[in-house]
Amino acid sequence: MADAPASKRERPLSPHIQVYKPQMTSVLSILHRATGVALAVGTLMVAWWLIAAATGPESYAIAQEFAETPFGTLMIFGWSVALFYHMSNGVRHMFWDLGYLFKIQNAYKAGYLVLLSTVLLTGGAWFCALNYTGDEAAPAISDRLVEAVIEEGTE
């Protein structure tokens, strides 16, 4: 290796993330980035929905049908979790930007608050989506989910 050009030589690396025990603060930080990527990809779904609606009732129906398949619903569910997490943790970031929550125990407390808020917001949104309804669509979605689970079980 000694005679390889300097730019090609294997350079020693400092210990990196693999030597650290995952900590709540670091895991939440990585999750913020991961959910950000997921949400950026999720904009495709919003774009599809809008373009389909602008194109006409047929393409709108295809998008609507996809959203109501178990896979589509699961995607929307995952997207909603990512959104509420990124949103809650984004507020935590804003507190940091303003100079608050820098004490370790406060950063942790706020982190648990972010997780709690993610669960509550996601649960709340889906509870509303599945229960409060001005039409017959909501029970249909939950019924379809139950049916899908039963189908999976019997296959």
Partner: peptide, 21 residues
């Protein structure tokens, strides 16, 4: 994004299952 996405989620929940019209 914060208020806009809250509005968006509220709207999506409200609009679920709605027809094209």
């Amino acid at each position: 994004n914060l208020p806009l996405m809250i509005w968006f989620v509220y709207s999506v929940v409200d609009l679920r299952g709605s027809s094209h019209a």
